[in-house]
Amino acid sequence: MEGKSKEREIVIVLPEDGDMVAIKDFLQKKLEEEEIDKNSRVILQEKVTLSGKEKKEIEKFLRKRAGLSSQKLSWVQHLAEEKRDEVQPESNAVGTVIPFVLPAVGREEPEKTLARGASNFSQVKEGSGVNQGREQEGEREMLPLKPREGEGREKRGLTPLPIFFTSGERMTVWGDENTILVQRTLRCGQSISYDGNVVIIGDVNPGAEVVAGGSIIVMGALRGVAHAGAQGDEKAVVAAFRLQPTQLRIAGYISRSPDGSTSTPEYPEVARVKNGGIVIDSLQPSLEKQLCAGN
């Protein structure tokens, strides 16, 4: 315990324009200002997309000047302010109304009823070899902190958040800052619409509606209509303690509850888009794993 120096995390937003020389000048200044050394952890946010070659050059520069290993470096796309505004003209205000438009492509009529049952469940639990392999390889965002390319997490407005273990290790989760907490039950005729994630502590009764740009989590019974990823995000999920929706929509997919009274399980479940349809899984085995998979 004695010699363990404290690790510092510094976020550097790279200048928007400027060539390599200008960027290096800028970084040199930052290195001095922030007293960055080999024990620092640096998150670089690029405002314009840099090429792989340019990134390599910057990493090399930091290694030489500050002794920073690439393990301690991570890249993040900086989300431009205007981009956020585009999606959300009314700022982050609670209850911002977003247009209820379903993308025309991939749209399905609510002919498909919610698939729930042994086949779906086991399918997911056992998983294809791909799923299992991924986990064993430890690709669950353990260190080094490196965003996977092509997954577009940064573009979706996710921010890397470090989780510290008491043992000293660290991992990163991708968090979405744009989330509202609703501490009440939505009754028949009431609706909430928000361009972000919505967490409801309460029930969503039949005849009530939740529309979210991101995911929807109901810490109660979801009996009304829920539309997650309302602007086309197919990675959005709908999770509820009791998932008994009248209708579920994720991005352009719509599914409805089966006709007639069917018994629903007495445990939390999550719905997401899989293989071109909305599929419901149990949320019990590992809540975290499933929610991560949704990201």
Binding site: L186, R187, C188, G189, Q190, N205, P206, G207
Partner: peptide, 12 residues
């Protein structure tokens, strides 16, 4: 019951 739920919301 549906209407009652609606009414309770409006009362609130």
């Amino acid at each position: 019951v549906r209407d009652a739920d609606r009414i309770i919301g409006l009362l609130e």
